[in-house]
Amino acid sequence: MTALAQHVAIERRAAARARSFRSYSPAKIVGYALLVFAAIMTMMPFLWMVSTSFKTDQEIFRFPLSFVPDGFEWQNYRDALNAPDAGRQLINSLIYAGGSTISNLVFCSMAGYALARMQFAGRNIVFALVVGLLMVPAQSQIVPVYLIVQKIPFAGGNDWLGSGGTGLLNTYWGMILPTAATPFGIFMMRQFFTRIPMEYEESARLDGASSFTIFRRVLLPLAKPSLAVLGVLSFQSAWNEFVWPLILTSQRDMATLQLGLQLLQSGPDARWNVVMAMATLITTPVILAYLFAQRHVVDGAVSSGVKG
């Protein structure tokens, strides 16, 4: 017995030595060099974006092109911010992303709670429906969603049958509603609520609390990390969204920053340095939000997406 244990221990130590020896092997060094190379290549577009945003008009067309700008041409940022409707687009983007985020937090957590912890007829059907809708390609629905948003009754001059007016086209409601709850969000919150032990709400129920009170006072506070993930993901997806705002708005004053950037780039007098300044300004908030919530986002993607 002891001899066997000793033998195993010796072999383990030998294996450990072999491993630590291997950690300095040429293969490891090449591997690490590849990793560094991949990281540099991945960063390249961002680095060019930032460096170009600080270049003057002449520098952009110089040959050979220099990676490092001669100086900091802050005027590009001023020009980007002074682009027609830029301020308006920022407000539109904030309202759209903020509205979509808040509604996702509220509606998905409520639905997820009901699916995870309540008993009611049809629960399995509803859950199967949510999982099934995860597979529906949202972008293939752009035509009917446009027509549905246009035909919402009593909105935008519509009669009760939904005809006659423009419905919710060119409104914040029209932009937010199609993204106000997602199958992914419901699924994620359901997965989270399923894992919380039942004891938490049983004691509250014994005290005579209602379902809503239990949800609001007991479970939501526990769900803060998951809500942070859902919030960041919802904000990111609405802030970055392009297709919905593109088809649901036709008026310039309802355009979001993403539409604005596209208009700025495709305009007749587009300047790459100003376009890159605008791209930098749009990209930064999302990256900062991610860096703040990083741990939660990665953990949340892990627990909701794969482990099921």
Partner: peptide
């Protein structure tokens, strides 16, 4: 990164 920002870059 937003798709549009990436596409523009």
């Amino acid at each position: 990164t937003s798709l549009i920002a990436a596409a523009v870059v």
